[in-house]
Design a protein around this nucleic acid. Structure first.
Length: 865
DNA sequence: ACCTCCCGCCATGCT
DNA sequence: AGCATGGCGGGAGGT
């Protein structure tokens, strides 16, 4: 009922209006806006074609490009038809065409299955809204309208929205209504997910599964038994078996239905899936593994084939949406067994910290409470745990929570709810800041310029020399700095208010909040609440130490960066700046890691980083408190909010960052000591392929795992000031790594250029097909050239305005920008020569350096469709 | 033949 | 009861 009212309430926005506002911010937006109107009317005709319509906005050429990239076939068709090209005004024409065609012809002409793909649909959907919407504007999404306009059944829209919701890119206002948040919260969300993923030890689980596989390969007969147990153990151990959903304070589920099904579904699957990427070192996750892990959690026992199939199907659905968001890319991993479909994370690199950061703030607890108004909060309280880690939740509690939530929801649902959301959004987003933001932006720019100057130079140089990859890495620092600075500045402002919570729907309050959302709540199911050994206080608090800071700063930067970046190109998919930046950073980091460390493994490095950061956190006095707030196995509250903290840190670190690189370096620097002990011995152990032995044993027993604090798990780290594991294990790992057995890192070789292959000593080298690389390159280049300026500017604008979407800037960068820019995934675009491999960091050969011995994986990106 | 994954039935839960 | 959501898996298009 209420919802309906709400709807009425919003109605005004509809279509043209709604859309317009959404996109408006940038010139691009403007274009979009113009376009959109077309849509609306166009939509009317409905018919099958929307797809083409969807793309219509020429202005968003990028979009088209992307889309086309996505499905070359489609492109071709479109071209044939000619529909695609001219979409702008043409939709009608198309319609006419459709009408004209007889059924068969008509159908044949257009409706290929691919055209109906979720990925394409998602692109269309995303095209309608700016990446960084202006909070001030009404960003409501009416599902019905969207479905109509896109000419798809609602069911499809749900699929998309559910995934977006899992990333907090949208939030449900009411029945049939969602609010578009764009990427404002994305970094935070990813950070939180990463933290949660770490808690869950997904990385370990992945390792275990892989291990099993290896074992199986070697020993066919064996090892079946192993899998289940392992998984189970994992889930049992840590895991939260039931983690339901990670929420942001601002972006809560307001709909009852949503709440009710919160635990299942695409939403949760999507989050978990993302976690896998964030946690795994290579950041390449095969569907098979993802499915196993996801199933494992839910039903340890079930390994039904049917279930597996279903899971895979869902994963494809999710993957399509994530791909549209440019967060992942389809690749193929070739193992001994054969080629398996997999996806590689291409989104921003995230630091787990968001949660950690939050802890820093003194407020967290208070803040949280304030926020609680939201059901989530309620749930949290119930489950509470806030402070502590151990919890078990009883079903009864859960029910209570639900009931409460439902009540709350109802209340909220009232007409006001929408309003609330808006407020919240605005608060979350930058809306409040405009003036401040501008100032900040200016400051940031200055800082950035100063700091970044060196890095940038480097970047350029590298670009020239090495090509894309280097650039990315180089850029990263600069970007990071930028980003960081911005956030830092901002945050203080945000901090003051403290109530970031947008949520508080209940309270009409205010909100000047930091853009970053405050807290996340993770719901776990009671069942498994079991005790986790270490309270997961992962929370990585801020660390004063430079190294840690540096790391975080980067990450944070990324996160924050988005906001800053936001403006930049939102041109849909690939081009988005925010992503690019992060990605670049990430890559850079990886490269760096590799370089120094050499082979061992990027994985390790990454792990180490995490662990290191965590450790540091522990050390911090703050940590304890922070920790408590941060994560909890069961109903977690993860206060992200505090970007402010981040900001401060970031600032500090920024200096360092500029000079130094990533934390990785540090790690490497002290090769042995640092590395070994730190991290997750587990992981390393896991990594071992089938080989053997001790490590495996160690790893295997869940109990052992639990007992031993692993570097990975934040919680663990928290418990021990120094997250050292068993020395022995560490040693073992270390040794193994050296041997090459362990190293997780994946090498990527541009498909065309096999050269990299040589590197992998052992088993696997991952070869990535170029498409992606090309894309990344493009990004990098873009980034390079324009990035700085854009980012800065964007940052300002973003901060101030909130959402701007700058038109995609042409790449200033030296090279192949143009192509890469819009590059289509398909091979054609790629410049063969350029080869950047960015894969996940795996290889940046160009950098020169060491390769990491890896497993075997050959990754070929093929683009989807 | 396998990989993808669209389609839409139908369960679930809110109104 | 009706409607909104969305789990689920058959089966078809693509390669």
């Amino acid at each position: 009922m209420e919802n309906e009212k709400e709807n009425l309430f919003f109605e005004p926005h509809k279509r043209g209006l709604m859309k317009t506002p959404l996109k408006e911010s940038t010139a691009a937006n403007i274009v979009l806006a113009e376009i959109q109107p077309d849509f609306g009317p166009l939509t009317t005709p409905t018919k099958p074609q929307e797809i083409s319509q969807g793309e219509p906005w020429t202005p968003t050429a990028n979009l088209k490009m992307l889309i086309s990239a996505v499905s070359p076939e489609i492109r071709n068709r479109d071209q044939k038809r000619g529909l695609f090209d001219n979409k702008n005004g043409l939709p009608e024409v198309k319609d006419c065409l459709h009408e004209h065609f007889s059924g068969d012809e008509y159908e044949k002409s257009q409706p290929s299955r691919k055209e109906k793909s979720l990925g394409l649909l998602c692109h269309k959907f995303l095209a309608r809204y700016p990446n960084y919407p202006n909070p001030a504007v009404n960003n409501d999404i009416c599902l019905d309208e969207v479905a109509e306009e896109l000419n798809v059944e609602r069911r499809r829209i749900y699929d998309i929205v559910n995934v977006l919701e899992s990333l907090h890119m949208v939030s449900r206002l009411a029945k049939n209504r969602y609010t578009w948040h764009g990427r404002h919260n994305l970094n935070q969300t990813l950070g939180t997910l990463k933290s949660v993923g770490e808690e869950n030890k997904y990385a370990e689980q992945i390792m275990m599964i892989k291990k099993k596989e290896y074992e199986q390969e070697f020993d066919f007969s064996k090892s079946y038994s192993i899998e289940d147990p392992i998984i189970k153990s994992n889930s049992g151990q840590n895991g939260h078996p039931d983690m339901c959903f990670v929420e942001l304070p601002g972006v809560e589920f307001r709909a009852a239905s949503v709440n009710s099904r919160k635990d299942k579904s695409l939403r949760v699957m999507s989050q978990k899936f993302v976690m896998l990427f964030l946690v795994s070192t290579p950041q390449i996750v095969s569907l098979e593994i993802a499915a196993k892990i996801l199933i494992g959690e839910d039903h340890v026992e079930d390994l039904d084939k049917s279930k597996f199939k279903t899971k895979i199907r869902r994963l494809y659905d999710i993957a399509n949406v994530l791909s549209s968001l440019d967060l992942i890319k389809k690749v193929h991993v070739t193992e001994e067994r054969g080629r398996k479909p997999a996806f590689k994370w291409t989104g921003p690199e995230i630091s787990p910290k968001p949660s950690g950061l939050s802890p820093v703030l003194p407020f967290t607890a208070s803040d949280l409470e304030a926020r609680r108004s939201s059901k989530e909060n309620c749930a949290k309280n119930l489950f509470s745990t806030r402070g502590k880690p151990n919890f078990t939740r009883h079903p009864s509690l859960i029910k209570l929570v639900k009931s409460i939530e439902s009540d709350r929801r109802k209340i909220n649902s009232a007409p006001s709810s929408p309003i609330k959301t808006h407020k919240a959004e605005s608060s979350q987003n930058s809306a409040p800041f405009p003036s401040k933001m501008a100032q900040l932006a200016a400051i940031c720019k200055m800082q950035l310029e100063e700091q970044s100057s060196e890095p940038r130079k480097k970047v350029k140089v590298q670009l020239v020399g090495s090509g894309c990859k280097p650039v990315a890495s180089l850029d990263t620092p600069a970007n990071a700095e930028l980003e960081m600075t911005a956030p830092s500045l901002i945050q203080p402002l945000g901090v003051v208010p403290l109530l970031p919570s947008p949520l508080s729907p209940a309270v009409p309050v205010i909100l000047p909040q930091a853009p970053s959302g405050p807290s996340y709540a993770i719901y776990l199911q009671p069942a498994q609440a079991q005790t986790l050994t270490p309270p997961p206080g992962l929370s990585p608090t801020v660390c004063p130490t430079t190294s840690s800071n540096a790391v975080r700063s980067k990450d944070s930067a990324d996160a924050t960066g988005e906001n800053a970046d936001s403006d930049s190109p939102k041109s849909s998919a690939s081009t988005r700046p925010g992503r690019l930046l992060p990605g670049l950073e990430r890559q850079g980091a990886k490269n760096r890691e590799r370089e120094p460390a050499g082979e061992k493994g990027s994985k390790r490095a990454s792990v180490l980083e995490d662990s290191g950061s965590k450790k540091k956190f522990k050390e911090d006095p703050k940590a304890p408190e922070n920790v408590s707030t941060t994560l909890f196995p069961s109903g977690y509250l993860i206060p992200l909010t505090q970007c402010s903290t981040l900001g401060a840190e970031s600032i500090l670190s920024s200096n360092e960052n500029s000079g130094t690189l990533s934390p990785n370096h540090r790690i490497y620097s002290s090769p042995i000591a640092g590395v070994i002990p730190v991290t997750s011995s587990e992981l390393t152990a896991v990594n071992f392929p089938s080989f053997h032995v001790t490590p495996l044993k160690l790893m295997v027993s869940p109990t052992s795992m639990a007992a031993v604090p692993v570097g990975n798990s934040p919680a663990l780290s928290s418990s021990h000031p120094v997250p050292i594991q068993n020395p022995s294990s560490a040693i073992v790992n270390f040794t193994l790594q050296h041997l090459g057995l362990i190293s997780p890192g994946v090498q990527v070789s541009a498909s065309p250029a096999p050269g990299t292959a040589a590197v992998s000593p052992r088993i696997e080298a991952v070869s990535v097909t170029p498409e992606h690389a090309g894309a990344q390159q493009g990004r990098a280049t873009k980034y390079d050239a324009s990035i700085l300026s854009q980012s800065q500017t964007n940052g300002q604008s973003a901060a101030g305005t909130g959402a701007q979407q700058p038109v995609p800037v042409t790449p200033k960068g030296p090279q192949p920008v143009a192509e890469s820019f819009f590059r289509t995934p398909g091979g054609p675009t790629k410049p063969a020569g350029s080869t950047c491999m960015d894969f996940d960091g795996a290889n940046h050969t160009s950098v020169g350096t060491l390769f990491i011995p890896q497993r075997k994986l050959e990754v070929s990106t093929e683009d989807v469709h």
